[in-house]
Amino acid sequence: MTAYDPHLQTPSGKPRARAFGIPFDGTPGRFNAITDVPDVAVGYTTLISGDGPLVVGQGPVRTGVTTILPRPIGELAVPVFAGMFSGNGDGELTGSHLIDELGAFNFPVTITNTHSCGVSRDATLRWMQKTLPQSLDGAWALPVAGETYDGFLNDINGHHLGFEHVFAALDAAQNGPIEEGSVGGGTGMITFGFKAGSGTSSRRVAWNGEHFTIGCFVQSNFGARRNLVVRGIRTGVELAEPAIRDNTLRAEKSSIIAVIATDAPFMPHQMRRLAKRVPLGVALTGGYGYNTSGDIFLAFSTANPDAARGAPGKMAGAFYIPDADINPFFDAVVQSVEEAILNALVANEDMTGRDGNFVPALPKTWLTERFGLTERSGPGERFGDVAPR
C-alpha cells in the first residue's frame, strides 16, 4: 500500500491520467488542480437517480452543478481581472458582455447543464445575498454561469437542478484535491464517445525569481471518437469499441467550458490572451470545434485585488508581468487544458442513462498497455491499491 498521491488519484480513489504513466509536459502544482491557485475553491452537487425510459420531470437524472470560488467567501465581492474567448459560440457563458467591457467579474462561477444555466446563475445571487448581504445592498451583479448539454443521458427538460443544489455546491466548495469525472455539472457529459465530465490540472511557472500557478478546470463534453488523441497517439481506430449505445437517435450536441485561474499578476487584456490559448490544449486531444460545440473559455487572475476593486476619486495602480514574458504562461495553459481533459476521461466509469442510452469509459486496459504504470507504482500495483486521503 502506497501513500495517497493526489497526482495519481482523486480523493475518492478514482485514477487520474498520471496513474497510468501518461507523460505530460510542464510541472504540476501540489494537487495538480485549479485549487493549486491560492484561495480558489471548487464545490459539487451531483444528481443521479432513476433508470429506464425517459419520463420528463421524473428522470432518469444524470446531472449536477459545479461551483468555482475565485476568492475566499468573505472576499467574493472583490472583482478579479478576467478575459474570455469563444472558440465556437454555440453555448452560453453569462456575464461575458460585462467581462468584455470591464475586464473583470466577481462572485462565484457555476457550470451545469444547458437548461439549468439560468437556475445556477440566479441561485448564485440568492446565495450571495444570504452569505454576503452587503455585496448586493444597493448594488447589482451579473454572475458567471456556463453550460454544456447532457440530454443524451439526463432528463434535461425535467429541470431537476434546484436552487438548493446550487446552494449545497457553493457551501461545499473547498481547496485542496478535488474530485473528477462524473461529478457536479460534468455528471452527464461525454467526450470523444467516452464518459467524461469534470477535469482539472495545474502548472507551476517561474518568473523573475518567483513562482506562479496556472490552474485549469474543464467541463468536457465534446469531440468525435475518430479524432481522439492521447499524447500524440491517434486512438480512433484502436478504440472504435466499446461504442456508445444510442437508443434515441440523438443529434450531435457537444461543448467544452474551460476556466483558467492564476495568481500571476496580469491585466485583463492578458487574461483574454490566456483564454485564447485554451483551444490549443483542446486540439491536442483531438477537439476540432465542430458546428454545435459551445467552446467557451474564461481566464481570471486573483492578483491585484485593490486595483480590481477600485474606488471613486482614487488612482488605482496594478503590477503586471509584461507581455514580453508571457510565453511560459501560454505553455502552462495549453499543458493544463490537455491534462484536465484527459483526467476527466480517465477518472470515470461506464454510465447508462435515459432510455438505456449507454456511454462507456475509456478502457483502462488500453491505457495500461499503451503507457504502462507510473514509476511510483510498485510491481502489481494498480490505481485501486492506493489509499485515498
Score class of each variant (00 low, 15 high):
A307C: 10
S336C: 08
F329C: 03
M351A: 13
D350Y: 08
E349A: 13
S336P: 03
V337N: 03
V334Y: 00
T302A: 12
V346F: 05
G356S: 12
F319R: 13
E349L: 09
R309A: 15
D350Q: 10
M351H: 05
L342P: 00
P322H: 07
Q335L: 06
E338P: 06
A340V: 07
D331W: 01
D331Y: 07
V359W: 05
E338L: 06
E339G: 05
G317A: 12
F358M: 06
S336M: 04
G313K: 06
F319D: 11
N343F: 04
N304C: 11
A344T: 05
A307E: 00
R309S: 14
I341A: 04
N343M: 10
P328Y: 02
L345T: 05
N357H: 11
A324L: 11
F330S: 00
V333H: 04
D350P: 12
M351E: 12
I341K: 01
L298H: 05
I326M: 14
A347C: 12
N357G: 10
A332I: 04
D325A: 15
A303N: 10
A344F: 02
V337P: 02
D355T: 06
M351C: 11
G356H: 10
V359R: 03
D323P: 00
D323E: 15
P312A: 15
A324K: 10
P305Y: 03
I321G: 07
E339W: 04
P312G: 09
R354S: 13
I341S: 01
P322Y: 01
F319G: 10
M351Q: 15
T302F: 07
V337A: 05
E338Q: 14
L298R: 08
I326S: 03
F329A: 07
L342R: 02
A316W: 01
N304R: 10
G353N: 09
V346C: 09
V337I: 14
L342G: 02
A311Q: 15
P312R: 12
N304W: 09
D323K: 06
G356L: 12
N343E: 08
I341L: 15
A316E: 13
N327T: 13
D331F: 11
N348K: 06
E339H: 08
N343A: 11
F329R: 01
D325L: 02
A332G: 04
P312D: 13
Y320E: 13
A303W: 04
G317S: 14
R309G: 02
F329H: 02
L345N: 05
F319I: 11
D350H: 15
D350C: 08
D331H: 14
A344S: 15
S336W: 02
A316V: 09
G313P: 08
D323A: 11
A318H: 01
